[in-house]
């Protein structure tokens, strides 16, 4: 991304290579390990499974990354949306409730999308106009959304069956599952927006140094608000996959996903030489999380080990990134 940084590094060629590509290396090492242990891992069907199982997480994690980019990655003051996973769950609840109540599926999906965007807009308003710390503003929104979901679902499973949703769940186009297409299209759209347009540069500028960005004439408020709206749209798209796969909605579906979403968003930095959150990295992180779950089942790791190993792998990835980040900071 920034060539002079590379030139200035006085460290060994091999170690700097390893650090620059640490994320990819770990990804490939883990994949090779699974492939060596299970002949089923690299089959076409299994690769499709990993993509399918990572789709919802990947889409919504792109939204989380967008918000982190626009708001800056400072742990406390930076951009974050803790309500994002519950926004998705709200969307799932609204869709399921309306379809179960007899509304056409398109009306249900449209209403749910509007509800999600409204939530995103309220988050944007509270962060940009009222100046809330995103961590707190969106945390309160998360609780509100949990409450609203309870009101809608009565905390029960809402089961629906609809030909369109069934097609999203089990259907395929050119041999590739519909959900994976949705993942590919939304991932590509957010990637292009962030890494190939002026608006994308503005978002990085607003997150990196808002004062400098403002001085350069970038409408920082508008840009930050936009990231929350983008996030809410990804939540709606992910919800469509979830509702299809679960044939409705189940209680707690948002809470269960929140940490994975945050993880994929923040871990995206390990797939970047500058250790910055980015969209391609987010897609890879989501695939990494999906691949771990899938691989552990395939190589028959006792379930009691899975969390510990997941934690160690992620710790490894993050410690490498942190070291890398420090190196980059020294040379900037």
């Amino acid at each position: 991304m920034n060539p002079q940084i590379r030139k200035n590094q006085p460290v060994g060629v091999l170690s700097s290579f390893i650090f620059k590509y640490s994320g990819y290396l770990i990804f490939i090492l883990v994949a090779l390990y699974f492939a060596a242990r299970s002949p089923a891992f690299l089959t076409l069907q299994n690769v499709k499974n990993i993509l399918l199982q990572s789709s919802a997480l990947g889409i919504i994690a792109c939204g989380m990354t967008a918000i982190i980019v626009g708001g800056g990655s400072h742990v406390v003051r930076g951009g974050i949306d803790l309500s994002l996973a519950n926004n998705m769950a709200l969307n799932a609840a609204v869709t399921s409730f309306m379809v179960a109540s007899g509304y056409p599926v398109w009306v249900a999906i449209g209403t749910a999308l509007a509800a999600s965007i409204l939530v995103g807009a309220i988050n944007a308003f509270s962060v940009v106009k009222l100046g809330f710390i995103p961590l707190l503003g969106t945390l309160s929104m998360m609780y509100i959304l949990q409450g609203v979901q309870l009101l809608i679902t009565k905390n029960t499973v809402i089961s629906i069956s609809d030909p369109f949703l069934k097609a999203v769940a089990n259907g395929a186009l050119f041999g590739i599952p519909v959900a994976v297409w949705m993942f590919a299209v939304s991932g590509a759209a957010v990637y292009l927006l962030f890494h190939r347009t002026v608006l994308g540069n503005w978002m990085y500028a607003a997150g990196g140094n808002p004062d400098a960005a403002r001085a350069a004439g970038i409408p920082v408020h508008f840009v930050v608000a936009l990231t929350y709206i983008i996030g809410s749209i990804t939540a709606a798209a992910a919800s469509l996959i979830i509702v299809s796969r679960l044939s409705g909605t189940v209680p707690g579906v948002g809470d269960l996903m929140l940490l994975d979403v945050l993880l994929a968003g923040l871990m995206s930095a390990i797939f970047s030489r500058l250790a910055q959150p980015n969209i391609a990295g987010t897609v890879l992180s989501a695939l990494f999380v999906g691949m771990l779950s899938n691989g552990f089942t395939l190589i028959n790791v006792p379930t009691y080990w899975v969390f510990a190993i997941k934690g160690v792998l992620i710790l490894g990835a993050v410690s490498i990134t942190t070291t890398q980040q420090r190196k980059v900071m020294r040379h900037v």
Binding site: T43, N46, L52, M257, S293, N294, T297, L298
Partner: peptide, 17 residues
């Protein structure tokens, strides 16, 4: 793991094998 999404993925992963 008492997570329906995970359990559905598990079944898909079992089918692959």
């Amino acid at each position: 793991e008492r997570n329906d999404q995970k359990a559905i993925a598990d079944i898909e992963n079992l089918i692959t094998q």
